[in-house]
Nucleic acid binder design. Sequence first.
DNA 1: CCATGGCCCGATTCTAATACCGGGATACCA
DNA 2: TGGTATCCCGGTATTAGAATCGGGCCATGG
Lengths: 80, 80
Amino acid sequence: MVRLPHTPAEVERGQRLGALLRRARGERSMLETALDARVSPETLRKIESGRVATPAFPTIAAIADVLDLSLDAVWAEINR
Amino acid sequence: MVRLPHTPAEVERGQRLGALLRRARGERSMLETALDARVSPETLRKIESGRVATPAFPTIAAIADVLDLSLDAVWAEINR
DNA sequence: CCATGGCCCGATTCTAATACCGGGATACCA
DNA sequence: TGGTATCCCGGTATTAGAATCGGGCCATGG
């Protein structure tokens, strides 16, 4: 009865997700990207830095929208 | 400084997500689907019944995998 | 009648995601 | 030097997701 702590595999997947999003953001500023996606800049920063292993689905979807990323491609790339 | 409560719009989007997943599951049993996706049956039930407004990205991705759904299509359909 | 299977619900537990603040480091330019 | 911009970090606060337990309901079949 209890939420389990994240496994190392989940942590690593979160780090791959963050790295992928940061690459996809390219030259755009973190602040502008966050505002466009309507998420807090802190949230985007934490996701990009890999400190949030399992972000909410709507959060990732909104960011992927702004960055013109396919969610299926993102999932396929980080899920190993 | 403080996580905001879910807005009615977010709640409704969660309900659309749940309904969509339930339709896509079709005849398959909830238990089998949950086990295949490696999520708790309770978690799947809560998502399908719309009581979890913003599930984790990996959770939804794993379920979509099992149900042969495109994440992009899911997002496009529930996000209005 | 009772067992089984499928689905649902409430309560509980505990970690994690989201969010804001203050501060710091860096770089660039006037 | 001072100003601006960007990003990072630590701390703190609060809601919410994930999971288990225990029980209930409704079929179907023994």
